[in-house]
Design a protein around this nucleic acid. Structure first.
Lengths: 343, 343
DNA sequence: TCATCTTGTTTACGCGCGTAAAAAATTTGA
DNA sequence: TCAAATTTTTTACGCGCGTAAACAAGATGA
């Protein structure tokens, strides 16, 4: 037999023998009522099925228990993984996660923020599109609702930022590549939508110079978030033109590398380490599919548990305290080398 | 200068010179007021920034303008693509899409439905997990809110179902493979979480028999949604054991095929068509990454635009009409062969 | 032009819950 | 055991908007 459904708190108060204001306190924070009455309420809750009407609740509360999660591109399994980790953490903290994807479109990003604002979220975790993000509009949003940025920084915007330490992560893979073979050229989009690419570019040049090597940049034409396609086309173009200055290519991210791997394969270039191989290809991010490329992709793993977890912790702290931080915290997490067969 | 923010409809009524009930009508359906007054309201809307408080609105309306979209596994770019297509279509129809992923977990699926029910959605588009879905609980949900199933059918549940015609799609790729080389063996999980796998299994056997061939089944052990990993491990096992009865393997879906391709590559088996190749591997779905595997994956493309579009159309029709259909419509869409290098 | 029809206004109530204030009940501590 | 401290109950108002009813104003047509 299933418990009887109860619609209003008034009705539930009558059935449970607890006054409505006490019930209201309980549903806002169970620990705010005495243990004995809490037990009585929970007993009644077992007998009758009742959940407060969230619309009525949120109308009368200045801040809701909603947390917005905005990612730039959900078709990238990377961000799907982040969302998967973030959702249960939000729920444990008593908040309701709302996942939105900008699908690579700056207009969509602003729309997402607008629709979030209409539901008066307690806070927002935002992984911005990056270079094409409409800075002013995002800034206006952040001034209204507590927002923590992650993955991709927009200088000065948001209450905090958590991302990966591109300088460190690029350095370790450059070092690894240099120690095990020819120094790498750096393959990246000429106009990358994401500023991480620029940071990695700079990190690559610094890492090469630190080793006394001269940086070699391979700039890929193309727009948008179809990284695999860009890698395939531009990588193929470079191979065909014999424009590779070295046998080792470090790609700005794994999705580009997946495209370059495909281009090499289609041209009969054997990719990998050891004798008989024409090319080494490495990536960055440890994309969920990096293990399944042919050959498996050598890359740098971002510490996404730490990035997502810290972002949420920081946001929750801001929400709990009720005050926006005066200094904007920015924390970077180190990556770890993932050696596989491709380089 | 940015428009002045107005909080309540009352206030906006005073500022615009329009009565509040008329404004209420306008916001529920702009066409329900005379063109001249509509123009006056829109003019006022340009001067003052006002949007109705959605919590107050939804409290007083029996049905909201929310549409829930529940997918089984968002880390599969496939479903991310579906969501990307569905979201703007919902918005155009004046509804607010809410995307939830079950992340492969039946408990999560039920939780998603529960959290949807608490926001009183006008309707729900549900791609169920499949075999592990908790049928009774989903059924209970469907009896309360209009629900259209897509991708994966649960017999008798929901107001309608739209999916792909596995019988047809498997037949065309079996025919293609038979005509261009050895007949294919069918590689699928022994305990697939998704019933589409079983339908494809049956379709494979039928297609083979129709050609006078005896079906060859390769059953992969493994649980969960880590299809690539299962394909890699089990595909590798089969190759190592020389247990392939033919040089052609048709995988139940592209993600399995991606794993099998990696297994073949790591064992030095050349996959593809033409002389010098040891193996042909084909998939099913036309996964976003199928173009970038090595070699590029021959597969069957599902007509996902049609499936997603029809599902939404049907749901909107049910919502508009206000009546649940008496007969459960189930429509299947044909797939198209995508010839690439792998088979 | 006047009667008729459509649309907007005025007035008023209710939705389900947060929350404040005062009174009542219960627990706590010495 | 009794006064003080804590918790619960009672009572009451407000949130912002949907919506119904009666009425007033404007549009329509012969």
């Amino acid at each position: 037999m299933r418990p009887q459904r109860v619609k209003t708190m008034e009705e539930f108060a009558a059935l449970s023998g607890i006054s409505r204001p006490t019930l209201s306190k309980f549903f806002n924070d169970p620990k705010s009522v005495r243990a004995s009455t809490r037990a009585r309420i929970e007993a009644a809750l077992a007998r009758y099925e009742y959940t407060p009407n969230i619309y009525a609740v949120n109308q009368n509360r200045l801040l809701t228990r909603n947390i917005g999660i905005v990612v730039p591109y959900l078709a990238d399994p990377f961000f799907a993984e982040v969302a998967r980790n973030l959702e249960p953490l939000c729920a444990e903290a008593g908040f309701n996660p709302i996942l939105l994807s900008s699908h690579g479109d700056p207009g969509r990003e602003i729309e997402n923020l607008a629709s979030l604002r209409s539901i008066k979220p307690a806070g927002v975790l935002l992984a911005p599109l990056g270079r094409r993000s409409r800075r002013d509009e995002i800034d206006a949003f952040c001034s209204q609702v507590p927002t923590v940025l992650f993955d991709c920084d927009i200088t000065g915007i948001g209450d905090a930022f958590f991302g990966s330490n591109n300088a460190q992560s690029i350095r370790i893979i450059v070092d690894y590549l240099c120690q095990t073979g020819e120094p790498p050229a750096f393959f990246a989009m000429a106009n990358a939508p994401n500023p991480n690419a620029n940071k990695r570019h700079a990190a690559y040049e610094a890492a090469m110079r630190a080793r006394g090597q001269t940086p070699m940049i391979l700039a890929a034409e193309g727009e948008g978030w179809n990284f695999e396609e860009i890698g395939l086309r531009e990588g193929g173009r470079l191979i065909d033109a014999r424009a590779l200055p070295t046998d080792t290519v470090l790609c700005s991210n794994d999705r580009l590398a997946i495209g370059v791997l495909a281009a090499a394969y289609e041209r009969g270039q054997r990719v990998g380490i050891g004798p008989g191989h024409a090319l080494r290809i490495a990536g960055h991010d440890n994309h969920p599919y990096a293990r399944y490329t042919c050959p498996a992709l050598t890359t740098v793993s971002q510490d996404y548990d730490a990035i997502a977890g810290s972002s949420l912790d920081r946001l929750l702290a801001i929400i709990e305290s009720g005050v926006r931080p005066v200094v904007r915290e920015a924390q970077l997490f180190d990556g770890t080398l993932v050696r596989r067969a491709s380089a």
